[in-house]
């Protein structure tokens, strides 16, 4: 007999404001190990806000609700504690950090996470080996990694670099904020492969996307639609296809009608 594991992420009635303006208005979402969830929704509906709140960025006021990560109060943890506990956010707009070498950054991050897991710092040669292997996997030119973090990277290269970091850090919960936007079709497949590589009962994925295309490679277990800071409906992969056909506007009005 196996005991049902507790969810990796449990969001309960989450309300978030920025400068007294409510952005998220009562989000409920439960993600278990082994699941892939997708969130779709129009521009400005609060998808990135949700991602940032989960990753611990400053500037958001939680006015109501709670978030449990592996049963612990996520919102009380610092961003680095969250990362060390296995949460990873692939940024919609990755940040350029001139003067900080990509490799140095990656190794520092990996070692911080390893330390938390009770592991020794990774040996320099092993690290190089690991990066080589993963760089090849995500199709990122190794020469890019000799540069500063994201400095002068093209939009697509930045996204690939996010996937590379994910592949190296092996997060328990990976959140991808529109990692597929601005990617060519090959890269899209690479993102999907990266996610699928994490697809086992140890890991979970929350992927924000505007396009059904990604979801064809990434067949999610659940699709949620976020409009106006609320999840207005949830379903299986077929929901994404329906959205593609009918658009948010129709769905939005339909839902409003139901609520009224």
């Amino acid at each position: 007999m196996t005991m049902a594991k507790q969810p990796i992420l449990e969001i309960r009635n989450l309300h978030v404001s920025v400068n007294h303006t409510p952005i998220l208005r009562g989000i409920d979402l439960v993600i278990h190990h082994g699941e892939v969830h997708a969130i779709m929704g129009p521009n400005g509906s609060g998808k990135s806000t949700l991602c940032y709140v989960l990753a611990g960025r400053e500037g958001y006021t939680i006015t109501e609700g709670q978030v449990l990560y592996d049963g612990k109060n996520l919102l009380a943890m610092s961003p680095e504690e969250r990362a060390q506990a296995g949460l990873f956010l692939a940024f919609q707009y990755p940040v350029e950090i001139p003067g900080v070498g990509n490799m140095y950054f990656l190794r520092t991050a990996l070692n911080a996470i390893r330390k938390h897991r009770g592991l020794e710092p990774i040996d320099a040669m092993d690290f190089l080996q690991l990066v080589r292997e993963k760089a090849k996997l995500v199709g990122i030119d190794e020469r890019l990694l000799k540069r500063s973090v994201n400095e002068g990277f093209s939009g697509g290269e930045k996204k690939r670099n996010e996937v590379l970091q994910m592949a190296i850090l092996e997060p328990t919960l990976a959140i991808l904020d529109e990692t597929d936007s601005g990617l060519d079709i090959d890269a899209l497949r690479i993102v999907a492969d990266g996610v699928n590589a994490l697809r086992n009962d140890q890991h979970a994925v929350l992927a924000i996307t505007h396009y059904q295309r990604l979801l064809e490679y990434l067949v999610p277990d659940y699709v949620h639609v976020l409009i106006g800071g609320q999840i207005v409906c949830s379903g299986g992969p077929e929901l994404a296809a329906e959205l593609e056909r009918r658009g948010y506007a129709e769905l939005g009005s339909q839902v409003t009608a139901v609520v009224q």
Binding site: A55, G56, R57, E58, S78, P79, E80, R82, A83, Q84, F88, L89, F91, P94, V95, I97, V100, F105, T108, A109, L110, A112, I113, H116, V149, Q165, L169
Partner: peptide, 14 residues
């Protein structure tokens, strides 16, 4: 730069 600081911390760097 606060953005950069958050980016590094979000990767586990103290």
């Amino acid at each position: 730069d606060e953005e950069a600081l958050f980016y590094l911390r979000s990767r586990g760097v103290a």
